[in-house]
């Protein structure tokens, strides 16, 4: 399960850049939108990378 905290998110776009099939950004304030909260096995590595690159700590995997 991916969790995204839009109160913490600063809209840098690292997740949408790294894993566009899983993360998008709000048109209003650029904060993260989860396209899915359950990544497939193939997506897991790239999602882990996006979580690691997130500058604000808004993303977690659990």
């Amino acid at each position: 399960m991916i969790k995204a905290d839009t109160n913490v998110c600063i809209g840098a776009g690292m997740c949408a850049l790294t894993a566009p099939e899983v993360f998008d950004q709000s048109e209003d304030d650029g904060t993260v939108i989860l396209l899915t909260d359950s990544p497939t096995a193939e997506q897991l590595a790239i999602v882990e990378e996006a979580v690691n690159l997130c500058p604000s700590g808004a993303l977690s995997l659990g």
């Binding site: 850049l17 998008d24 950004q25 048109e27």
Partner: peptide
């Protein structure tokens, strides 16, 4: 800082 950044982030998204 958040008050300002939130005004701007929607303008600089990847899309």
């Amino acid at each position: 800082h958040t008050r300002f950044r939130r005004q701007l982030t929607g303008q600089f998204t990847v899309r």
